[in-house]
Design a protein around this nucleic acid. Structure first.
Lengths: 172, 172
DNA sequence: TATTGTTATACTCTATAACTATA
DNA sequence: TATAGTTATAGAGTATAACAATA
């Protein structure tokens, strides 16, 4: 333990950092894969579609603008359009031009959409409990939420390189 | 905060669990996306290709059987063949039947493969430091590695649902 | 002119099933 | 018969660029 600092200078990652990085990739990868299967089987939803439905379900009116929906879920606008089309074709959402701003499209969760969401939730939670939370203590979960929350805040604040193709363009 | 225990029974996730889950997905998603871009720009590598090269680079002989390579990197055998073909076409790896077991294919990292790996590493590390580790203390990193390490162990031990199409079939 | 969203298109990746060959 | 790997093929998802419409 000579230098346990995060080593912001050296061009190397410390062994602990490597551990953390590899574990993060492997865990998120496996969990996501398992969750995707469950969603596919229980409701024929891709993960992105689930995220969109869940986001709509969280909003009070069950609706949202396309641009707001895109936040964090998708990396390109056309990708969002594509997924929204699929959801609309299945009758899980509705799309209509916003009255406030005719350029915007308001996406709204339908009753059928809520049904699918409800059909999928229990299994979704079961997978998470079994795969992610089963081996963790309450303290572990808090630590995880705390640390990852800090990273998330950092990521949201820092210039998203090109994660967000458009949107949030201050100067230029 | 009546029941802060991990709540292994109720069919709901606690607020902290939800936090941890969402943060995990968002962070891993953003980090991975950023890393993928860097790898693409610096060495024209997909993340899976990078993982394969890096795995080979870690092994003493710079070579490995296909099946061993697949571990954790890919979810189907054909997917691995596909990526290995791409790497071979670019001259970054070599494929040859193993002498010990003629059924096996031994994949070996070439000098060109090592070069690409070397070309890509610094930027890779830089992205991780900037995006993932920048806002974390040494203790944070250790906590992260510890908790995720525990989950990883759990995931590796538990029946991979169908993550591993073949391989590791005890009874049957 | 800037913003919102869609469309067309090309491409990457993944997965299932059928198949070959060796143990 | 079981294992290692490849092939064919089909489908899902993503991204870029060009486009239309509104602010």
């Amino acid at each position: 333990m000579t230098s346990d600092a995060p080593s912001k200078d050296s061009a190397q990652l410390s062994p602990v950092e490597l551990d953390a990085y590899f574990a993060l990739i492997e865990v998120s990868s496996l969990v996501r894969h398992a969750v995707e299967q469950q969603l596919r089987e229980a409701g024929d939803l891709s993960y992105v579609q689930f995220q969109l439905l869940a986001t709509l379900g969280d909003s009070p009116a069950g609706s949202s603008r396309m641009t707001d929906l895109a936040d964090g879920v998708v990396y390109s606008r056309s990708g969002l359009t594509y997924q929204a089309q699929l959801l609309e074709q299945r009758g899980l959402v509705t799309r209509a031009p916003s009255r406030e701003d005719e350029r915007s499209t308001t996406v709204t969760l339908t009753d059928a959409g809520r049904d699918v969401l409800a059909a999928v939730f229990p299994g979704h939670i079961a997978v998470l409990k079994e795969l992610l939370f089963e081996p963790l203590s309450g303290g572990d979960v808090e630590a995880l939420a705390g640390v990852l929350g800090r990273v998330r805040t950092h990521l949201r604040a820092s210039p998203p390189r090109s994660a967000a193709p458009r949107r949030r363009k201050s100067s230029s």
